[in-house]
Simulated scan of single mutants.
Amino acid sequence: MKKVLIIGVMMSGFAFGQVKNDTIEKVYKLETASYKSEKKEKPLPLSRKGQMFAFFGWNRGAFSNSDIHFTGNGYDFQLNNVSAKDRPTKFGIVYFDPSWFTVTQYNFRIGYFIKDNLALVLGIDHMKYVMNQDQTVGFSGNISDPTYAAMVQNGQVNLADEKFLTFEHTDGLNYENLGLEKYRNLIHKKNIDLVWSYGAGIGVMFPKSNVRLFGNERSDRFHVAGMATDLRSSLNLVFWKNWMIRAEAKAGYINMWDIKTTLNNKPDKARQDFVFGEVLAGIGYTFNTKKYN
């Protein structure tokens, strides 16, 4: 009887130990599989430190009226409340031909996430600013040349015939800026994410101003003319984890105090400041600079 009891205890102990070992092994395998699955899962787009994106698109702009002050040899005057608009290129192959892309009103961005959901964004906004030619504006100041002084009547000057002034930043009104943007994921599906961002930027104005004043040779050269700042917000539709369609709106302030008005190195210059608005859209690509698996 004792032998039977001893054998029964040994068998039960063996069976219990086997069950316990099987259970531990199963739990270990489940935890390992869960860990591997979690480790291999890619982070949400536009959400993690180390992620980057690049973007190229096109814009439309609008500008407030501004006062433009001109100084040079024999003149010092201001044109008041001058209106202007942008000049979008007619839609066509020029929008997609790399050799012609600078002709359009384009935007370029490259962003790097310095923290989760917080990106440092370097951008170029190539806008175009064209003074409306068919307008009469207020005038204050003096002009020594009697021909152009005579064009001022009752404190106003008519710009329609282009003899007094043509004034553009069309190659263009270039805002080279650095921004800080916060990102928030709104929708997360298998192959589609919708991400909202908002932020602010600051940068330099590097226009190629096309100015012809008093019939002089037209000024047409790139030059650091001032600074600007902006507030911006965007919606980013990310599909297949990497490709991105971006739509952005921004508003800002531009102050240019050193606009070249003659082609040579004369001290002639103009200054102006105004508020601008801009909407843009285009396509981009997101990628990780860190391995998450």
Rank of each mutant, 00 (worst) to 15 (best):
V4T: 10
I6G: 02
G8P: 00
G8S: 13
V9N: 05
V9Y: 04
V9Q: 08
M11I: 07
F14M: 13
A15K: 05
K20W: 07
D22T: 07
T23H: 11
I24K: 04
I24Q: 08
E31V: 12
S34N: 09
K39C: 04
K40R: 09
P43M: 05
P45R: 04
F53E: 00
A54M: 10
A54T: 12
A54E: 05
F56K: 02
G57K: 00
N59P: 07
R60A: 15
A62W: 06
N65C: 06
S66Q: 12
I68M: 12
I68G: 03
F70C: 03
T71C: 09
N73D: 15
D76N: 14
N80V: 01
V82Q: 01
D86V: 11
K90P: 08
F91T: 12
G92M: 07
S99D: 11
S99I: 01
T102M: 01
T104P: 01
T104Y: 00
G111M: 05
F113W: 04
D116L: 09
D116F: 09
N117D: 11
L118F: 04
L118G: 05
L120N: 00
V121G: 01
V121M: 03
H126V: 07
Y129A: 12
Y129W: 15
N132D: 15
Q133D: 13
Q135W: 02
G138L: 03
G138V: 06
S140G: 06
S140R: 03
S140T: 11
G141L: 13
G141C: 13
N142F: 14
P146D: 02
A149K: 07
A149C: 05
A149E: 04
A149G: 03
A150N: 13
Q156W: 02
V157L: 09
L159C: 08
A160I: 06
D161A: 03
E162D: 12
T166E: 14
H169N: 15
H169C: 14
D171I: 04
D171W: 02
L173D: 04
G179W: 00
L180E: 01
E181K: 02
R184D: 13
R184I: 15
L186K: 03
H188A: 15
K189T: 14
K189R: 14
K190I: 12
L194T: 05
W196R: 08
A200P: 00
G201P: 06
V204M: 04
F206P: 01
P207T: 07
P207F: 03
K208T: 09
S209R: 05
L213S: 09
F214M: 11
F214L: 10
R218L: 08
R218P: 05
S219E: 07
R221G: 12
R221M: 12
R232H: 14
F239E: 09
N242Q: 12
N242M: 09
M244E: 05
I245L: 07
R246F: 02
A249M: 06
K250F: 03
G252V: 08
M256Y: 02
D258M: 02
L263E: 10
K266V: 13
D268V: 02
R271S: 08
R271Q: 12
Q272S: 13
F276T: 06
E278I: 02
V279A: 15
I283Q: 08
I283D: 10
G284L: 07
Y285W: 10
T286Y: 00
N288A: 15
K291D: 15
Y292V: 04
N293S: 15
N293P: 09
